[in-house]
Computed example of a mutant assay.
Amino acid sequence: MSESTANTSSVERSLVLVKPDGFRRGLTGEVLRRIEAKGYTIAALAVLTPDRERLAKHYAEHEGKPFYEPLLDFMSGGRVTAAVIEGERCIEGFRALAGATDPTAALPGTIRGDLGRDWGEKVQQNIVHGSDSPESAAREIAIWFPDGALN
């Protein structure tokens, strides 16, 4: 079989978090609706208040940056919805669905563009997180769903 006819399926898994600002505003259902409307499958779902240990693992690459401590304070300050989604190129697809990190600059039609805004806080409260690569997704899913329930 030539490379051009080889199976090029890129079904992926990604971690999606509805952050405390989104959870507090009752936007979890809307975020999940948009994920499902896009055609992705929700493979795992949990609602929890993350502790700083879990968050330190999740945001390890940002340790030492000025926004690190305010980010941990924000993320540990309320409940979040953690979801594992599955689908063809879902990492890229969800990040497009989420919109730009800055909700003021995020385009209309995206989660952050439609539902987010700048609240003038020390850390950007932008409703959702989505994994940025297959490697990050695997690492993050293991942090948020450590029991190995996903096969």
Rank of each mutant, 00 (worst) to 15 (best):
S9H: 13
D73M: 02
L71F: 06
A6Y: 02
T41K: 15
L107A: 15
D114M: 13
G99S: 03
E53C: 05
R34C: 04
L115P: 02
T49R: 12
L17D: 08
F74V: 02
L150I: 15
N7H: 09
P103D: 06
R13M: 12
L27P: 01
Y59A: 01
M75C: 03
F74T: 00
E135H: 11
L15M: 06
T5G: 01
T110I: 14
I91H: 13
G29Q: 08
W119H: 14
A37Q: 15
A6H: 01
L48V: 11
L55M: 02
L48A: 10
G130R: 00
R54V: 04
A149M: 09
A6N: 01
G109A: 10
S14M: 12
N7I: 05
G116A: 12
I141F: 08
A98Q: 03
E88M: 05
V80S: 01
C90V: 15
E63C: 04
L27E: 02
E140H: 12
K19N: 10
V84Q: 10
Q125D: 02
L45V: 11
P70T: 07
N7F: 09
G78E: 09
Q125I: 03
N126Y: 02
E63M: 07
F145S: 05
E121P: 00
F74Q: 01
G22L: 08
F94C: 10
R24L: 02
R112Y: 08
S14L: 09
G39I: 09
I143G: 05
G148W: 03
P134W: 02
